[in-house]
Design a protein around this nucleic acid. Structure first.
Lengths: 202, 202, 202, 202
DNA sequence: ATGTAAACGAGACGGTACGTCCAGTCTTCCG
DNA sequence: CGGAAGACTGGACGTACCGTCTCGTTTACAT
């Protein structure tokens, strides 16, 4: 049984041009300053075509960001490798990357843009939460769980809590462009995994 | 040396009416939907009078919130009293209050509104950070410090870190209306002060 | 020599549906308010099919009206019959019918619509003139000529002039929904044929 | 008792610029092609200012025309002068002027524009009738009455009828750009005032 | 008491973007 | 190929606020 697709099919070129334009303008002007009209002009597409597929600015932005048009994206926690399992090193690498993101104008404005995008209503709120907050939280959580399995009892608390606390703190700092010092990172590392790297020294 | 104050003095009534109107509209419509024009109408004041004293919507909102026109405000951590010093009980009380705030539509939308208000520029960002984030963080910090002085070594980490992590996590949950369970609160308590209140009982 | 007619032949059903829809919408909404899109929808025909055969709204309307889809049409002057030749009676009958048309909302708005349809350019102007003005003028003229042949010298002026003046006056009244009284009709009759029917009575 | 006029007064400059722009565009593009947006741009006025005072294109045009922004206007019947009283000469002069108007592109398109303007509704219809039809009719009527008083019994009919018939015929010819020959004018003169130039021959 | 001067209300102004509508064209599939 | 469906560009629509600008009015201090 085939599906009967009458009428001119949706133009992939237009769709992509809009999302690309949205990200460009988001970086250049920020969420509040960018306009639907501007997106259409930049994408060389009629305004009607934008409104046909997205009903608001935030919908365009959310789709653009959540389908990978975000140039780079926030740093995600990496696992150090097969044989190695150095949580402390992995965390430090990630926190350093986050430190750059916080200092980076573009990243900060993108985060703010996303926040503004969610201000409209709870539907959007959920989308943003799923796209911005959850990935960071989950990446951290997976890493913590892995570490906990290999070195039981060396974490300061349940993996999901550590993940949530860390994510919350970092996102808030990102939002307010509150820089993180290397000292702060050290303290954080000690806090999350106090034992594993200290005990050997004893 | 006297200051020469010619001309009609600023009307306190107008000033208050504007701030009151701003808060009302913030609750009713959210930050994005409310307008300077709407504020003027609601306050029964001419638009020019609003612009004479505040140059933008976010300035009005920030002043309104930071001078106490915020109806209620977020719960703040209380100290259990002179003789007593039960961190666990104080934290639980505060976390329960936060749980209600998170569930409360008005509080969540106000928090979102405030966060959005900062999206415009870094000047505002600082004001919001100072008004919204710092108070929570500092209240927690003070409490943790007090506890640490009485019961050294029983905190899971440096007071300022615990404060920041907790504040970050809670604000993020508030922002996204992510509810907190009592189970979650229990785990959090165990996490923050694992030993001090339990071990002595053993 | 046969003409080679390849492909699917033009659908008569579609053509008629379009013209019918055009007249319906003309009556319901007037010329300005009706749209090509609306015609297509009402006729249950694709927009392209409309554009394939008519290049503009006024073309559709003009064809619809000039091929008899006009419901009713303006009253036309009748000849009283073979043996009889009462110009005065015929004129009175026709003027009474026109009086009703002028009072009739639908007729007036249709006339206005047709006039508006010509506003675009001179091509259309000619078509409308031919369809709306000429018939009335010619019917009157024929009648006046017939009368003049039987009763020479009893008309107030050359037949073609009387016809033009009458048609002009009546169409203008129709256009502006300016009602005609029976008194006005009397005066008009006296004016057109002052002597022929009165003097003999003296 | 003074009238309290609060608020910034209406700008006469803007008002005039809009009406002037409307007439210019009417001549250049015709009624259908001109747009509210175009009027605003041409008048160097914001679109909102146009809509503040006129709710539609036809309102602007009608006001522009009825307050004298019409460049020239249709020719009006003149009285030949104090001592003289030559209706025939006056009529001939006016009909010659009308002949030029009919041939003139600008005049014809203006007349058509006015017609289109009235198509919207009966409110406008009345305004147009008052501005376009009545003046012509009344000027003719006044002249006929004057002539009738001096030379009773020399007119082909009641002054008001002659006026209406003439106006109707001429306006319809103007509308459809149907030219008038000098021969036609002669016949018309004979028709309107059969006696004055005929009787001497008797 | 009488200026003088700033704050006030009212509201018009030039703008910008909104979100909708329709004109025409183009692209795809079906009969 | 004709026709139905419907996406496309383009541009005007009428509205909502923006932030600025006159106005006439009010209110307090300074003569």
């Amino acid at each position: 049984m085939r599906k009967n697709m009458r009428g001119r099919p949706r133009s992939r070129a237009s769709q992509e041009a809009v999302l690309r334009a949205a990200v460009e303008l988001l970086e250049e002007q920020g969420f509040t300053a960018m306009t639907m009209e501007g997106i259409a002009v930049r994408a060389e597409v009629s305004k009607q075509t934008v409104y046909r597929w997205w009903s608001s600015k935030s919908e365009v932005v959310v789709e653009a960001l959540s389908t990978g048009y975000f140039p780079g994206g926030l740093p995600i926690m990496q696992h150090s490798g097969e044989g190695r399992d150095d949580l402390r090193a992995d965390l430090r690498a990630w926190l350093d990357a986050m430190r750059e993101s916080i200092a980076c104008e573009a990243d900060a404005s993108l985060t703010q843009a996303v926040l503004v995008a969610l201000a409209g209503g709870s539907e959007r709120s959920a989308a943003v939460h799923e796209w911005l907050v959850m990935p960071m939280r989950e990446a951290l959580e997976r890493r913590f769980i892995a570490h906990d399995q290999r070195h039981p009892g060396t974490l300061a608390g349940p993996p999901e809590f550590l993940a949530e606390l860390l994510a919350g703190s970092l996102l808030l700092r990102l939002m307010f462009a509150e820089p993180t010092s290397s000292q702060w990172v050290d303290q954080l590392l000690d806090f999350v995994s106090p034992a594993p790297l200290r005990r050997p020294l004893e």
